[in-house]
């Protein structure tokens, strides 16, 4: 339009450019506003309310301000640490297993060694389309003697005392559910990232006579590392929040009410009605989660070459 064609040296044009600029700032804000309202309303404010709540103790329905006493109690609460230990153990075993499993699938899909990779991709991805609670119920039944064909087959083979739901094994059984749910999804994430990699490097390496494993290890995997770390961080966050699977499984075998931190928070709030303490637990858990992702980003993230 005329405004843009005119030289901005003239006063009139300057003013109208300025007006246009202000208008753009206003539009930028208006576009943001709806999201900001729900974000502040249902993300930021709850955090403030929750923190406020955690500073009180309720005695016969009357709230008493106790400063950080609830937090101090959380840090010295053996049940909280037991739960934390469970999810840390879960994370240390399940995440590496799942990530390596997903990486292998992604690389093999990417190399097109296997025919029918489209069908395979679909089948591997399927569990992600299943609601988490359904996955937990489904596997829970597959762990339950009497209804499960797997337990039935094991019994048939003479392993009559084997159980998926015993105290020592149940964490592994929960790991299996989570692995089943998320491996396919993660391998698709890796696969998409691999497909976005520039082909020139691979072509050049092939011409130079590099083998498939060399290409994977020297070129593709290093380029994939940022994606791997993103998946890793989200997995750590998810592990610390473990709730659905153990909650459903606890209806099929007995698990302590503090089995994972989130089960502890839920039971503290809704079985024992101790909202204040549960709020403090939530904050400490969030703190640990942040700490874990921060440490991962700080120390485990692949160092970029500064000159690059």
């Amino acid at each position: 339009m005329d405004v843009l064609k005119a030289r901005p040296t003239s006063q009139v044009a300057k003013r109208s450019l300025h007006r246009m600029n202000v208008k753009r700032h206003v539009y930028a804000f208006v576009f943001l506003l709806p999201f900001l309202i729900v974000f502040v309303g249902f993300y930021v404010i709850p955090i403030i309310i929750g923190f406020h709540l955690a500073l009180f103790v309720s005695v016969f329905g009357v709230n008493h301000f106790v400063w950080f006493q609830n937090f101090v109690n959380v840090f010295t609460d053996p049940n909280f640490y037991r739960g934390l230990l469970t999810v840390l153990l879960f994370a240390v075993i399940q995440i590496p297993f799942m990530v390596i499993f997903a990486l292998i699938i992604a690389f093999v899909l990417n190399s097109r060694i296997v025919k029918g990779s489209k069908l395979f991709r679909f089948l591997v991805f399927l569990p992600y389309a299943v609601p988490g609670v359904v996955s937990a119920l489904l596997w829970g039944y597959l762990y339950t003697p009497g209804i499960s064909p797997i337990v039935g087959a094991l019994r048939h083979m003479g392993l009559s005392s084997f159980t998926f739901l015993g105290p020592g094994v149940v964490l592994m059984s929960i790991m299996n559910i989570v692995t089943w749910e998320w491996t396919g999804y993660n391998s698709i994430v890796f696969n998409s990232s691999l497909q976005a990699q520039p082909v020139e490097l691979e072509e050049a390496a092939t011409i130079e006579g590099a083998s498939w494993s060399q290409i994977v290890l020297r070129i593709k995997f290093p380029l994939l590392l940022p994606t791997v770390f993103l998946v890793l961080i989200f997995s750590v966050v998810g592990s610390l929040q473990l709730f659905n699977e153990p909650f459903i499984i606890s209806s099929m075998t007995s698990l302590p009410y503090y089995y994972t931190p989130n089960m502890y928070i839920y039971n503290e709030a809704f079985s024992f009605g101790n909202l204040n303490y549960a709020a403090a637990l939530s904050f400490v858990l969030a703190l640990f989660t942040f700490l874990a992702s921060f440490l991962l980003m700080r120390y485990a993230l692949p160092r970029r070459n500064n000159n690059a």
Binding site: F39, I47, F290
Partner: peptide, 24 residues
């Protein structure tokens, strides 16, 4: 700044918000 706050909130575990949301 607003964007970085929003980006950071992706790492806030949603379940950590459930109890505060209940109170709200």
């Amino acid at each position: 700044t607003i964007f970085w706050i929003i980006l950071g909130s992706i790492f806030v575990p949603v379940t950590a918000l459930v109890l505060p949301v209940f109170v709200l």
